[in-house]
């Protein structure tokens, strides 16, 4: 009996590693190609049949890439946009989601529907009117159009957090209510701490969105001192050809710190999101 359990565990382990490795391989191949490409000359990049490794390792892509691409400035600008957006999105979305998930009032459903509906309007038709609105209040050319909207709830996260908040046992918040804690108090003192990891996930997603948003910075920023990483990367995409080597070199440098942060913090995003400690 014991043996069979051990045996099964072993098989399970080997099988899961095999599947994970197979998936990792699929996911990693393009990235491997990217990193290797950063060290290749154009001729090697375009060799047929495919040349995975080259003897002719070059550092030109890095020097070229870094010369075209003021990395520090662009990373800094991206952070100036991303960090307030992350905080604003997490706090405001959580606030709104609490009202939608935990307070039983008549507009709860209609408001949720309207918030969902905002995600369904294709951006390219609202782009020009939105630009006109931001121009009217004098925000074009600043970071504000890229930051401010996140302080009033982002539909995607409101929905995500609502799903989480629906899962928090009633008994937990009801007890506080009976004790006379106000709703804001419950949100702030009970739900927010409980959902800290879910908020971390929201912040992670928002960071990635600010990080790879192209159209927003493109439309609203005109001063090259304010450009972001993603906008800067289009430098390498010319009309007729792409400077693949330098683009890959810069991308490789950029992806490393984010990957490290994720590697170190993923436990918070994932394990920590659990609310299981309080499950009945």
């Amino acid at each position: 009996m014991l043996q069979s359990v051990l045996w099964r565990r072993l098989v399970e382990k080997i099988a899961s590693h095999a599947i994970l490795l197979a998936f990792s391989f699929c996911f990693f191949i393009p990235l491997l190609w990217m990193v290797l490409g950063a060290f290749k000359t154009p001729a090697d990049l375009n060799a047929t049949p495919v040349k995975w490794f080259t003897h002719d390792i070059t550092w030109d892509n890095f020097s070229q890439g870094v010369q075209t691409f003021p990395m520090g400035r662009y990373v800094l600008n991206t952070l100036i946009i991303a960090v307030p957006s992350m905080i604003g999105a997490a706090v405001s979305s959580s606030f709104i989601a609490y009202g939608l998930a935990r307070i039983d009032w008549p507009l709860r459903k209609p408001l949720f529907v309207v918030i969902l509906a905002t995600m369904m309007i294709p951006y390219y038709v609202t782009m020009v009117p939105l630009f006109q609105m931001f121009k009217a209040i004098g925000w074009v050319g600043t970071f504000l159009p890229l930051i401010a909207p996140h302080f009033f709830g982002v539909a995607f996260y409101v929905f995500l957090l609502r799903q989480f908040y629906m899962g928090i046992p009633r008994s937990l918040t009801d007890a506080a209510r009976v004790d006379g804690v106000s709703e804001i108090g419950i949100w702030w003192r009970i739900v927010l701490p409980l959902s800290r990891p879910a908020l971390a996930a929201v912040m992670l997603f928002q960071f990635l969105i600010s990080w790879s948003d192209l159209l927003g910075p493109l439309l609203y920023l005109s001063n090259s001192n304010l450009y972001t990483v993603s906008l800067g990367l289009t430098y390498f995409r010319g009309e007729y050809a792409t400077a693949f080597g330098p683009l890959m070199a810069v991308s490789a440098i950029l992806i490393v710190p984010v990957a490290v942060v994720f590697f170190l913090a993923q436990r918070t995003f994932i394990q920590g999101i659990t609310l299981s400690g309080i499950k009945e």
């Binding site: 994970l20 998936f23 990792s24 996911f27 990693f28 393009p30 990235l31 190609w33 990217m34 490409g37 990049l45 990635l208 990080w211 790879s212 192209l214 990483v229 993603s230 990367l233 289009t234 390498f236 995409r237 792409t242 693949f244 683009l247 890959m248 991308s251 950029l254 992806i255 984010v258 990957a259 994720f262 590697f263 993923q266 436990r267 994932i270």
Partner: peptide, 24 residues
Amino acid sequence: SFYRTIFFLPSILPVVASGVVWLY
């Protein structure tokens, strides 16, 4: 953690860059 990072890496890459990689 290692596997998780691998599966998450593609989401970190700005789409401007990943598009070009996938063209290759």
